Simulated scan of single mutants.
Amino acid sequence: MNLYRSARAVAGASGDDMIDWQSAADAAKAVTEPGSLELEPGEREAFARDVREAREAIRTVSGVDFDVPDSIEIQNRHHWMDANIATFERVMGTLEEQVPAGAFPGVARTINTGTMTVLLAFLGRNVLGQYDPLLLANDPEETHALYFVRPNILGAAEKLEVDANRFRRWIAFHEVTHAAEFGAAPWLSDHLEERMEEGIAKLSDGSLDRASFQELDAAMTVVEGYAELLMDHAFDDEYADLRRKLDARRQGRGPLQKLFRRLLGLGLKERQYERGKHFFETVVENRDLETAALVWEGPENLPTQDELDAPTMWLQRVDR
Rank of each mutant, 00 (worst) to 15 (best):
L3D: 14
A7D: 08
G12C: 08
A13L: 14
G15F: 07
D20K: 04
K29Y: 08
K29G: 08
P34G: 04
G35P: 00
L37R: 12
E38T: 12
L39Q: 04
E40V: 06
G42V: 05
E45Q: 01
E45Y: 02
A46M: 04
R52N: 04
E53Q: 01
A57C: 03
A57Y: 00
I58V: 10
R59A: 09
V61D: 11
V64D: 11
V64W: 04
D65G: 12
P69E: 08
P69A: 03
Q75V: 02
H78Q: 06
H78C: 09
W80G: 00
A83W: 10
F88I: 12
E97K: 12
E97H: 12
P100W: 03
P105S: 12
P105W: 09
G106C: 10
N112M: 10
N112Q: 15
N112R: 07
T113P: 03
T115D: 11
M116A: 13
V118Y: 08
L123T: 13
R125Y: 06
L128K: 00
Q130S: 08
D132H: 13
P133L: 10
L134N: 09
N138K: 13
N138E: 15
E141G: 11
E142C: 06
H144D: 14
A145C: 11
L146P: 02
L146S: 02
F148G: 01
L154S: 11
E158G: 14
E161R: 14
V162H: 05
D163P: 08
D163I: 10
N165V: 09
R166V: 09
R168P: 06
W170S: 03
V176W: 01
T177N: 02
A179H: 05
A184L: 07
A185V: 10
P186F: 12
L188N: 13
S189N: 07
D190Y: 08
H191Q: 14
E193V: 07
E193A: 02
E194V: 05
E194C: 00
R195A: 13
E197Y: 02
G199I: 00
L203V: 13
S204F: 01
L208M: 15
L208Y: 14
S212M: 03
F213R: 10
E215T: 07
L216G: 00
D217E: 14
A218D: 08
A218G: 04
A219R: 01
T221N: 02
V223F: 00
E224R: 04
G225D: 03
Y226F: 15
L229V: 05
M231A: 14
M231C: 07
D232Y: 09
A234N: 05
A234P: 07
F235L: 15
D236C: 09
E238P: 06
E238H: 09
A240T: 09
D241L: 12
A248G: 06
G254F: 05
G254I: 13
P255C: 13
R261F: 11
L263Q: 13
L264H: 06
L264P: 02
L266Y: 11
K269S: 15
E270D: 13
G276I: 02
H278K: 15
F279G: 00
F279M: 02
V283Y: 01
E285C: 05
N286K: 15
R287D: 00
R287N: 02
L289C: 07
L294Y: 12
W296Y: 14
P299S: 10
L302D: 04
P303Q: 03
T304W: 11
E307L: 04
L308V: 11
L308E: 02
D309A: 14
W314A: 01
W314D: 01
R317C: 00
D319I: 03
D319L: 05
R320D: 15
